[in-house]
Structure formats: C-alpha cells, structure tokens
C-alpha cells in the first residue's frame, strides 16, 4: 500500500506518437507524482494537448505505455477506460461547455450522467463546486454569456464535479486578462491542495506556471529536454531551459522555420517568380 502511495499516478514510458508524417513524440518518459502540480511546458506545436489526450485515452500511441494509477490506459476495455475517466478531469482550452445548457446544468451534467442523486443533494453539490470557483451567482447564465475566464472556471467546476483524483489543464492561462489569470493560478493551487488532487498543467506561460508548479517538464522536438523543480530549471545551464524560461527568440529552438539559404532564395526570386 505504502509503495502504491509513492508510485507516480501517471507513468509514461517510451511514448511515440505521430500525426501523419510528423513525429510528435519520439520516446518521451515522464512521471506525474501524486498530490502535486506537474507542469508540462514547451513551445506551441510540441504536442502538449496531444499528450493530455493520450493520457485520457482519446488517442492511441504508436509505441510506449501510459499508465494511470497502475492501469495501462490503452489496454483497457472501453468500459474500464470510461471508469478510469470518471476519476480524471480534463479542462479544455476552450472550456468545451455544452452550449445548450446553462452554467448550473453544465456542472450538473457529469453528476446527472453518472449518479442517481436526489435533486436537492445534486443542487447542493453543484453549488459547492460553483462556490469553489467563485461563480455560484452565475448559475443561470448560458455559456455564450460568459467571458473566457469565467467559462474556464465553470469548466473547472465541472471537471471537479465527480471528485476526480487528477485534473489536467490544457493551456489554462492562454488569452486571459491579468486578473482572471491570477484567479486561475490561485484556483489551481488551492483546489489541488484542498481536494488532494494531482494536477497536470500544460502551458507555455512561463511565469504563471512556474509560480505554482511543483515539478516541470520541458518538451521540444518530441522529447523531454529538461525537467526539475522551477528552482532547479531556473538554475540549470541547459541552453534549452534558459531560452524557454527567458523567452529568447533564438537558441536551440530556432527563430526560423527550416528554409533554404536566405541569399540563394532571394537570388532565384526573379526566376522563381517567372517559373
């Protein structure tokens, strides 16, 4: 039992995944420990969202294993996978709220689908979840009436409705104003600690994520290029970590998309235009 407690909640080994010709992950090893906030960071297009979908079993890897709570996600039967998903929440970047239901019903949705609670208890539960994200007063609004930050908070309330063991956040800070960004940062930390969750935050917002993460993985080019606590990464002399954390335009991640030589390209310009 004790061993189980210390074993990582998510264990990824030798993960390979491709979209068409493009290799997204090429041998990723990664552990997500229980009770903490693990951040997965990297530039846009490194497949951070894809990683969450792989953990949730929505995509299948080419090779490698993903174990969640000791179960190999991609070996599970459909029923077992759905059982497992009840214990994990995924917060989509868009919120993915059901647009024909109001805020209350959106949060009530997983409860109505998976439990047979009496209406009064269900109401209490939904209001508790909404209170946790500060939107109890917005229960009658429709998703179209919410700001981006509010929609994400409603989605967060929905993600924790079934009291999951883990919540995965897909770019929670993107496109948020400073206030709602601050609110979300605090919420993620507070909910994680208060509910005893394990959180996975996928993001490229360095400061915000580093401020709440217990452990950070840096992904690039389909591989883990750096890992450690925010402190360790900040002190590391890895050119990659330094470029990413400081936001320098050029470095191991080149500023330029691969292209033929600049001068040559300009020289053939006049011919190229004709041909």
């Amino acid at each position: 039992m004790a061993q189980e407690e210390t074993a990582p909640l998510v264990r990824i080994r030798g993960l390979r995944f491709a979209r068409g010709e493009r290799m997204i992950f090429d041998g990723v090893d990664l552990d997500i420990h229980r009770g903490g906030i693990t951040a997965i960071m990297g530039p846009s297009g490194t497949g951070k969202t894809t990683l969450l979908k792989l953990i949730g079993g929505q995509l299948r890897p080419l090779a490698g294993t993903i174990e969640v709570d000791g179960q190999n996600v991609h070996r599970l039967s459909r029923d077992r996978l759905y059982q497992l998903r009840k214990r994990m929440g995924l917060l989509f970047q868009s919120g993915a709220l059901l647009t024909d239901l109001n805020v209350f019903e959106n949060v009530a949705f997983p409860l109505r689908e998976h439990t047979r609670l009496p209406e009064s208890m269900l109401r209490d539960l939904v209001l508790m979840k909404l209170e946790a994200v500060g939107l109890r007063g917005a229960r009658t609004l429709m998703p179209s009436e919410l700001s981006g930050g509010m929609a994400r908070r409603v989605a967060l309330a929905r993600a924790i409705a079934l009291d999951p063991m883990m919540v995965m956040y897909d770019e929670p800070f993107t496109g948020q104003d400073p206030i709602s960004m601050g609110v979300l940062v605090k919420l993620i930390r507070r909910l994680n600690d208060a509910l005893g969750l394990t959180s996975v935050v996928v993001s490229h917002d360095v400061q915000e994520t580093a401020s709440i993460a217990d452990y950070i993985y840096l992904l690039s080019g389909g591989k883990v290029v750096g890992q450690g606590t925010p402190q360790q990464l900040g002190d590391s002399d890895s050119a990659w970590a330094q470029q990413f954390l400081k936001g320098e335009p050029d470095g191991p991640v080149p500023f330029h998309y691969p292209a033929p030589d600049y001068v040559e390209d300009l020289m053939v310009g006049s011919e190229g235009a004709r041909s």
């Binding site: 979908k53 949730g56 929505q58 759905y82 059982q83 998903r85 009840k86 994990m88 929440g89 995924l90 989509f92 868009s94 993915a96 709220l97 059901l98 647009t99 949705f109 997983p110 689908e113 998976h114 989605a155 929905r158 079934l162």
Partner: peptide
C-alpha cells in the same frame, strides 16, 4: 470540443 469533453467526462 463538446463531444471530446463528454468523452473525457466518461459520457
């Protein structure tokens, strides 16, 4: 992503 979201809610 509503359908995807539903799948992740085990619906």
């Amino acid at each position: 992503e509503q359908l995807s979201g539903m799948e992740m809610m085990a619906v």
